Computed example of a mutant assay.
Amino acid sequence: MSAAPSLHAPEHTARRRRRPASHGRATAAARLGRWTLLLCAALLVLAGLFPDLVAPGDPLAVDPSRAFRSPGWGHPFGTDESGRDVFTRVVHGAGPSLFIGVTATVLGVGLGAVLGLVTGLGGRRVDAAGSRLVDAMLAFPTLLLALLVIAVRGPGVAGVVVAVGLSSAPGYARLLRSEVRRVARSGHVEAARMLGHSPARIVVQHVLPGALGPLLAVATLGIGQAIVWASALGYLGLGAPPPEPEWGAMLNAGRTYITNAWWMTVFPGLATVAVGVVATLLGRRTSARLAGRRASDG
């Protein structure tokens, strides 16, 4: 009777030893992924704010004798039809692309926050009217709504910012409305009402801090999405005019030579995808942390 546990003891010990090892490997992989993500984000920010540190040179410098050079030692991303270095143009294009994405996201979050707060805190009629407006805007495909705004506002960087910002505002408004209503029904808000706090104080001190967190996490995702939309509009010729080093405009210029000079299209496209992936991963990590805090608070 006493021998049976001893026969299984080594197996239990081996299981205990295997679990910490696998857990340590998973933790190390997660830590490596986190630092890789932060490094990529830092490189993108560095390229956007200080492009001369990454790629010193003039992105508009023309040298016809070096036109259509394939990627190599002197030009890692090759050259375009005018002999301009594609690597320099891609790095210098990070600034305009990030500016459009961040500015459009700020505009969309601001408009969505106002509409979401009004519908979430207003009465039944205000909520119904605001919800119908949001539903009507969401009925349009995002790119189509952006094209309609540009048709009224006009092409260019300012037009793209306004178009992408207005197109993303309904999604932020719907999210904030639901968060405001959730927080307004929570226990600490009810306790603040019972203590006699004014409605303005309750909104500022209790409702907004609890409702804006998820909105900011989604806004991080929205930056990458806004850059992709802005690049799509630039590809259609509605963004920055050539020869500005903007990724969408570079895609538009390179599509004519894609069979002979593929690098003119591939590298600006990869840069757009990289920004979208980094912003998406950052947004997911932020959302996961907020969800963990909610679970611990609850």
Results as ranks from 00 to 15, higher is better:
G110M: 05
L238P: 06
P209T: 10
V204E: 03
T79W: 04
V183N: 11
G187A: 15
A291T: 13
V180M: 05
H8T: 11
W35V: 07
G254A: 15
A169S: 10
R124E: 15
A219S: 03
A4M: 03
I100E: 06
V134T: 00
R17N: 13
L212R: 02
L107P: 13
R15G: 03
V180W: 09
P243I: 10
R182K: 10
L166F: 10
H75K: 01
P64V: 13
R15I: 05
R201V: 14
P268E: 11
N260G: 14
A41R: 07
V152F: 13
H23I: 03
A14G: 01
D297L: 03
R15C: 04
P242Y: 08
F68L: 06
Y235W: 11
E11N: 04
P59N: 00
A104I: 01
L144I: 15
V278P: 09
R66C: 02
E246S: 01
E179D: 06
D63K: 07
R174F: 11
I258N: 02
Y257E: 13
D63G: 03
D85N: 15
A139R: 05
T142C: 11
D52A: 10
G165C: 09
E11K: 08
L148I: 05
L44F: 04
S186E: 08
V114T: 06
G72T: 10
R294L: 15
N252Q: 12
G108K: 05
V218H: 05
S6N: 02
H8D: 10
S131A: 09
A249S: 09
R193A: 06
S296D: 07
L115G: 07
L236H: 03
T286D: 10
V278C: 14
H92W: 10
G196H: 04
A200Y: 08
E244G: 01
V203A: 13
L175K: 00
G78L: 02
N260D: 15
A184R: 15
V183A: 02
H75N: 14
H188A: 06
D297P: 01
D85T: 12
F50E: 13
V204T: 12
A42T: 05
G283Q: 08
R84T: 06
G74A: 12
A291G: 09
I202Y: 04
V134K: 07
L195Q: 10
V183L: 12
C40H: 00
S65Q: 01
V62H: 10
E190M: 14
D63I: 08
G74P: 13
G33T: 03
G108I: 08
G171V: 06
A230Y: 06
G165H: 00
S70R: 05
V207K: 00
S22V: 15
R185G: 14
R284W: 10
V160Q: 06
R15E: 07
V207M: 04
L53P: 00
D127Y: 15
L212V: 13
S168L: 12
L37C: 01
V45C: 06
L270Y: 01
L38W: 15
R84C: 00
T13W: 02
V86E: 12
L216S: 05
A21K: 11
V118S: 02
V160M: 02
P214F: 07
R289K: 09
G298C: 06
A200P: 03
L49Q: 11
Y172Q: 01
A230F: 12
G154A: 09
D127H: 13
